[in-house]
Design a protein around this nucleic acid. Structure first.
Lengths: 228, 228
DNA sequence: TCAAAAGTGTTAAGCCTACACCCATGA
DNA sequence: TCATGGGTGTAGGCTTAACACTTTTGA
């Protein structure tokens, strides 16, 4: 039996991660300053080459761990970019993933080492290569996903107020929502547990804290899917 | 400036195509019989290796042309499969695309050369490697796409009856639809032109033929998207 | 006592679903 | 004349969207 497809070209394969975070007001992206030529000093997504023994998802997790110190990050594959000239150094295929992380959990020392910074979606600087396009794909996918599933709990602290959740959805969707309708819809989904605790930071009156209930979520998960 | 990332592993990259067709009754898949070891004689998706000067989309088009003789086929990237052991011969990354083609337009001589055959979705044979998983991803994506956009005209002849279109949607969605509601919905979308011509094959009375109106479609395309 | 955010229901419109009969024609 | 598939409209239920006032409490 043959054991290589030996006459075929072999290419570099990388993963690039679009890392979303939420600061209770805006949706943000974690970008790094590229520290080698070409495009040294310009803003870039965090990425890495696919190693021999790992899947692209493993590679994306590894890259995220390296930059943020976080394990078990929510990841979803978006699209693979393959233009022969997308990387001027050498042809590289890039498999992109988006990640949702809690801004407060990430390791600041590691980000500093990579000259990483958070940018609001409205203030994303020009990015190297086709990374801008990757970000646009990721935002679209995140919006779609958020419109069909109660995603995004990964972006919030464990306990959060209804208003924080609403702000998150507003940030993802890029539009304001009515708070009564929002609460109604979320309650219908029945995936949150209302706690007796209140968060006293945001107002004098305080607002109830909620927790995401994974069990309820998994039990009813099918319902969130669009009808097909 | 460096001009290679020389210490990194280079991998084979392939595209695999999930080719959908419609025979006025059922949604079908075009599969080929693999003609080399391992898994020689087993059913497989049509695929090919990415060449030096082409994008993965170009590669998918090339592969489709080779098998079907068709240019300008509707293609959409689905997912990239990267398990290190997915191909026992040699590690290969596979970027998958689904294609929608009109069964009657494809070149039968070419399919014969590749020992290709159409299979109903309900009778897909076991496939090599992870190709079964690829098919499942493609079906899900096609269903999603069809539920948000008037896709699938690529699967029909240029002129088609409302009933043919309905059968197509039923095949994609895997469920029967009410013909009055279906016609209403399609008419609301306002992307078809009703012709004066009738198709006399399907019934004694005959049924009106329609054409897909690309201009109307593009003019109103945004409306089909789910609200986000 | 005032400012600031939290919490809470109702109504109207639009959309989706279910459902049945007549029409035109070839055999 | 009859069997076959084609074509068409309406009513009820459900979902979504719009909308405002009272509560709490720290300053």
């Amino acid at each position: 039996m043959i054991n290589t497809y030996s006459d075929q070209s072999h290419l570099l394969v990388a993963v690039d991660c679009i890392i979303f975070g939420f600061d209770n007001e805006e949706l943000k992206l974690l970008l790094i300053k590229r520290n080698f030529e070409p495009e040294k000093g310009n803003w870039s997504l965090m990425g890495g080459f696919l190693q021999d023994d790992e899947t692209s998802e493993n590679a994306a997790s590894r890259v995220l761990l390296k930059l943020t110190g976080l394990h078990d990050v929510y990841l979803e594959q978006i699209h693979t970019f393959s233009d022969p000239n997308r990387d001027p150094v050498e042809r590289t295929i890039s498999i992109t993933y988006y990640a949702l992380i809690n801004i407060e959990h990430h390791n600041e020392e590691l980000s500093r080492q990579h000259s990483a910074e958070w940018f609001s979606l409205s203030e994303v600087p020009p990015l190297i290569f086709d990374h801008g396009q990757m970000v646009r794909y990721a935002i679209n996918r995140l919006r779609y996903k958020a419109s069909t599933q109660p995603i995004g709990f990964e972006l919030l602290p464990e306990k959060f107020t209804m208003r924080q959740l609403q702000k998150l959805y507003e940030a993802i969707q890029g539009q304001e929502l009515d708070k009564r309708n929002f609460a109604k819809k979320i309650n219908q989904l029945d995936v949150l547990t209302k706690l007796d605790e209140k968060d006293m930071n945001s107002s004098k009156r305080g607002s109830y804290l909620f927790k995401f209930d994974k069990e309820k979520y998994e039990a009813s998960q099918n319902n969130f899917w669009i009808k097909i």
